[in-house]
Design a protein around this nucleic acid. Structure first.
Length: 389
DNA sequence: TAGGCCATCTGGTCCT
DNA sequence: AGGACCAGATGGCCTA
């Protein structure tokens, strides 16, 4: 990222920030024997997008110059043979310490530049991968990107939540899913995630300190959602046991799925067992009120569906777009999910609940109703937990 | 203005 | 020797 506009190249300060020069306006690389490793200025920026043949060769590209440097080195090393050490004693045998010459400094500098360029490229690749990750975790938004650490945490939680959902073998409840997603996330991210899920995270996920709290009986939750360690800073078993109230869940109209969204669940419960059963194995279609939707090749379908829909395809071949099933496999055969707004093409600028509330259709039925119902249930549960304490 | 986040530079380490 | 990877340092930008 360019941190300084071209109009204001700050050369008064550290050479490396001179990297904001555009191509073709690079200052000359003056060898600085003192700060030879600190001269990083603009060539790096040149290499940021693509290798710059000019500056990648700026010192050593000229073979003649390279020869000159080598000759200089040889001369100085010969000269070095007659030198004495700092105590005036003849120089000891052994691997001679190469004297710093101008040519050597230049080469060091060039290597440093190249290393910097590689490092930038590497980090850009890393960031690209992170951006890809952002796109497949819930609440992707181009306008409000999750931070790196929050992306990693959310991805971890997402994987965990999906794994638990699959292993549970039945339709998950929205609250539990959201709580798992939000574990260890910052308050803004929690709000974002919950907001994307049509929930007010602060009300049911966090205490007044902004931390995720689970005031009572975590045993049930932990049994159902054993947490795999907190390598990213999240703590297991801190769950607000709204799960106790939320778990009963999908049979109840008080929770997100069912009701008007029954078609998304194939009209059957896991116990009823029509959907996604293969050889007796339960393969529940998963969809929280259509809150997420699988990214696919026909964007217009999002508009048709009229709401977000998350269809994660863990079981290839189960269902298709044309069917009510939640399962879907991308053409690439990969899991590829993306949150989409109810309004096609609208980008959700999250961050505040007021913003969330202003979204078209944000509070519309039935999603809004389900969210409110779920919120109410979770509030009751949290209140009960607080009272028990 | 402090704090969070980020990009970049840099030198060290390990590996080929 | 050179590249990949890593972590520390630094400073810019943004927001509460």
């Amino acid at each position: 990222m360019l941190t300084l506009p071209y109009e204001e190249p700050d050369m008064t300060y550290e050479p490396r920030f001179g990297a904001n020069y555009p191509r073709g306006s690079l200052p000359d690389l003056e060898p600085d024997p003192i700060h030879s490793l600190n001269v990083t200025s603009n060539p790096e920026r040149e290499c940021e997008e693509e290798p710059d043949p000019i500056h990648s060769l700026d010192v050593t590209s000229d073979p003649e110059e390279g020869d000159i440097s080598e000759r200089e080195d040889e001369e100085e090393e010969r000269e070095d043979d007659n030198q004495q050490d700092e105590n005036g004693l003849p120089r000891k045998r052994g691997p001679r310490r190469k004297k710093s010459t101008k040519g050597r400094q230049e080469r060091v500098k060039v290597r440093r530049h190249e290393a910097n360029a590689r490092e930038r490229s590497r980090m850009h690749g890393l960031n690209d991968a992170l951006e890809s990750l952002r796109k497949v975790v819930p609440c992707y938004s181009k306008t409000q990107k999750l931070s790196k650490i929050e992306t990693l945490r959310l991805a971890k939680n997402y994987i965990w939540a999906l794994s638990e959902t699959l292993s549970a073998g039945k339709k998950p409840d929205l609250l539990g899913f959201v709580q798992t997603l939000c574990k260890g996330l910052s308050q803004p991210t929690t709000n974002l995630v919950a907001g994307c899920l049509q929930l007010k995270a602060r009300s049911f996920l966090t205490d007044h300190n902004g931390e995720v709290t689970y005031p009572s009986s975590t045993a049930h939750y932990d049994n159902m959602y054993p947490y795999p360690g907190a390598d990213l800073g999240t703590a297991p078993g801190q769950g607000c046991s709204t799960l106790d109230s939320a778990k009963p869940s999908y049979h109840s109209r008080h929770y997100s799925y069912g009701g008007q969204y029954e078609p998304y669940y194939d009209h059957t419960s896991p116990e009823g067992g029509r959907e996604g059963h293969v050889g007796g194995q339960i393969s529940p279609p998963l969809n929280f009120n259509g809150i997420f939707s699988l990214k696919h090749d026909e964007p217009e379908e999002y508009g048709k569906s009229g709401h977000y829909g998350m269809r994660y395809s863990s079981v290839p071949g189960h269902g298709s777009l044309g069917s009510p099933s939640m399962y879907r496999v991308s053409p690439e055969g990969r899991l590829h999910y993306e949150l989409h707004l109810r309004s096609a093409g609208q980008s959700y600028k999250a961050g505040t609940q007021s913003q969330q509330a202003e979204l078209p259709g944000w509070d519309s039925e039935p999603v809004g109703r389900a969210a409110r119902l779920g919120l109410r249930a979770s509030r009751q549960s949290c209140q009960a937990g607080t009272q028990s304490q």
